[in-house]
C-alpha cells in the first residue's frame, strides 16, 4: 500500500491538487496540511467529540477526492475544502440529532474550552475576554449565526472567503455577521454570561 512519502511542504495548494489528480499520495499531503485546522473547525461548529470530528473530516476528504476535478483554480483551495468540510459537518450533525443523539449535551467540555480563540472584538475593544464563556455563548446561538462568527472571528476568514465557503453573496455575509454579533451580545446578556474579564 502506498503511504504519504512525498515531500510537499514547499508546494502550493494548487500544485498539490494538480499532483493529487495524478498521484493519490499528494492528496495525503493536503490532508495533513489542513487536518488540525479543520478538526478545530468541525469542533467549533458542531458538538462532535474529537473521534467523531476525525470521522467527519475523513468523510469530507473522501468527498473532496471524488470531486477534486471540480476544484476551480480561481477559488482559494482552503475556501473549497472548508466548504466541503462545513457541508459534511452540518449534514452529519443534523443526522446525528435526528437519530435522537443530541451531542450538545454530551460535549467534551475540556476540548471545547481549549480551542484556540482570537476574537477580533477582543482586539477592537482592547479588553480581555473569557474564552470559556465566549465558547459557551457561541454554543447557545442559532447555528447560522454561530457558524458565521466562527468563520469570521475564530477562523479569521475574510468576507470573500466566507462567501465562497458558505456559497452566499458578500452582502448577505456582511448582514449575517452584523446580526450574529448582535445575537451574540443579546444571548450573553439574556443568559447572564459575562465574557469580559
Amino acid at each position: 500500500m502506498k503511504t504519504t512519502t512525498k515531500n510537499c511542504e514547499d508546494m502550493s495548494d494548487k500544485e498539490l491538487v494538480k499532483r493529487s489528480l495524478q498521484d493519490v499520495d499528494y492528496f495525503a499531503c493536503i490532508y495533513e496540511r489542513y487536518e488540525q485546522k479543520l478538526i478545530w473547525y468541525i469542533l467549533r461548529i458542531s458538538s462532535f467529540s474529537l473521534e467523531e470530528a476525525e470521522d467527519v473530516l475523513q468523510e469530507a476528504f473522501i468527498k473532496a477526492w471524488k470531486n477534486l476535478n471540480e476544484f476551480d483554480e480561481n477559488l482559494k483551495f482552503s475556501s473549497w475544502i472548508y466548504r466541503i468540510v462545513h457541508n459534511t459537518t452540518i449534514t452529519e450533525w443534523k443526522k446525528s440529532r435526528s437519530y435522537g443523539k443530541d451531542k450538545r449535551q454530551e460535549l467534551d467540555e475540556e476540548i471545547f474550552q481549549n480551542l484556540p480563540s482570537s476574537l477580533d472584538i477582543e482586539k477592537e475593544a482592547n479588553q480581555k475576554f473569557d474564552k470559556k464563556n465566549i465558547q459557551k455563548v457561541l454554543r447557545l446561538m442559532p447555528e447560522n449565526y454561530r457558524e458565521i462568527l466562527v468563520l469570521k472571528f475564530l477562523e479569521e476568514k475574510n468576507y470573500k472567503e466566507i462567501s465562497d465557503i458558505l456559497k452566499k453573496p458578500n452582502g448577505t455575509i456582511a448582514t449575517l455577521i452584523n446580526r450574529a454579533k448582535k445575537s451574540f451580545y443579546e444571548t450573553a446578556k439574556e443568559k447572564n454570561i459575562s465574557f469580559i474579564i
Binding site: 504519504t4 495525503a28 475523513q58 473522501i62 471524488k66
Partner: peptide, 25 residues
C-alpha cells in the same frame, strides 16, 4: 496509523473513483 494514511488506505482499498472534469463542466 496516521489519519492521512487511513485516508489513503480507504481511497485505494475501496478504489474510490474521481468524477471527471467534463461532468462538472
Amino acid at each position: 496509523m496516521k489519519n492521512s494514511q487511513k485516508l489513503l488506505e480507504k481511497i485505494q482499498s475501496e478504489k474510490i473513483p474521481q468524477r471527471s472534469r467534463g461532468l462538472f463542466v
